[in-house]
Design a protein around this nucleic acid. Sequence first.
DNA 1: CCTTCATTTCGTTAACTGACGAAATGTAAT
DNA 2: ATTACATTTCGTCAGTTAACGAAATGAAGG
Lengths: 115, 115
Amino acid sequence: MKRDAVNPLKAVGDANRVRILKMLEERELCVCEVREILDLSNSTVSQHLALLRSADLIVDTKDGKWVNYRLHVESGNVLVRSLLDLMKKSFEDDETVREDKKKARRVDRVKICGV
Amino acid sequence: MKRDAVNPLKAVGDANRVRILKMLEERELCVCEVREILDLSNSTVSQHLALLRSADLIVDTKDGKWVNYRLHVESGNVLVRSLLDLMKKSFEDDETVREDKKKARRVDRVKICGV
DNA sequence: CCTTCATTTCGTTAACTGACGAAATGTAAT
DNA sequence: ATTACATTTCGTCAGTTAACGAAATGAAGG
């Protein structure tokens, strides 16, 4: 079995990363915005995002000193596209996910970063 | 976030468990048949199956001294059904998965168990 | 160039996971 | 009941993972 064929599935098997994917359904976010919502350390969030990126589930774009992450819905990896689609339909009733999404809509990077 | 909401995703994030789910698409199998195909110890296979069962992805039925496992396609858990559906469409090109399925079709428990 | 600040990388630690063999359990047939 | 044999549980071990703070990197503006 090919080495990293399972990586997208591994990546999605963690509650914090599920929360990240769900909040990215609302809009793209930078590291410190995700940190604010998840209430984890900056480095931890950065690692989660790096792992999701290496699984091809998200991509990043630079925006000045910020790095924006968004869902990689146009991935060439069929498993990735299917998983993002599955995620979109899942966890919609989860209270934490709902809160996260609400926060994602309102969060403002200039206010919360660098505190 | 509810404690075990992510369990099905966790369960599917392991190459050996992916292989198990894929071979169960062919037909139900007992522990020693899976052991034969995966070439792992009996206890390890048993644990993988227990984990998949606790994630609601498979169910077991007793058949004499054997325990048959099959995909839980009628699960009440939407995430589980979606995942099984996703799995069905994935890894079809994987050579190992193809071999596993072929073996699953031919394997005979009375011949290979208790060796 | 120097400072600021978001992000990443590094080093460490605690917890989890996947693997095994041995022992325990359970079932069917003698 | 005793045996045979499939499965599960137990105890253990090595490898992985998720978390943190501290240090390094990189980009924007003074």
